[in-house]
């Protein structure tokens, strides 16, 4: 266990984003399943996703997936190269830097049609 610090934040964020993405996945399986009930039903329901609130929500989803992916690489690297473990904090800062670098342009492109 940690007594605070970068490693603990990395770990808590990994869990929270993981649960969040799984929750969305379950909803997304159900909404996509509506294609089996025909065009009218499906189109009426997925239209909800075009609401501005959901457009912002999908940026949050993208953020969660991106963080979870980048920190997942960090965890896997540390698993297979234990000699890196003294550098786990720097690796976390690398994750944060890469996240910001990829997320900002992505969020801009996703939200641009709203304005």
């Amino acid at each position: 266990m940690y007594r605070g610090g970068a490693g603990q934040w990395a770990w808590i964020l990994h869990r929270v984003t993981g649960v969040g993405v799984l929750l969305f996945l379950l909803i997304h399986i159900l909404d996509t399943g509506l294609v089996l009930f025909g065009a009218e039903v499906y189109d009426r329901v997925v239209k909800i996703y075009t609401h501005p609130l959901f457009r912002v929500g999908e940026v949050g989803l993208a953020a969660a997936v991106l963080y979870h992916a980048l920190n997942g690489i960090r965890i896997t690297l540390l698993d297979f190269y234990p000699e890196l473990s003294g550098r786990q904090r720097e690796l976390f800062y690398g994750v944060v830097a890469l996240f910001v670098l990829l997320f900002l342009p992505g969020a801009y492109l996703m939200l641009r049609p709203l304005f």
Binding site: Y2, Q8, W11, I75, L78, D79, S85, Q88
Partner: peptide
């Protein structure tokens, strides 16, 4: 609580 490796992985 399961013990964690330094990275936060199991």
């Amino acid at each position: 609580m399961a013990e964690l490796s330094e990275a936060g992985g199991r």
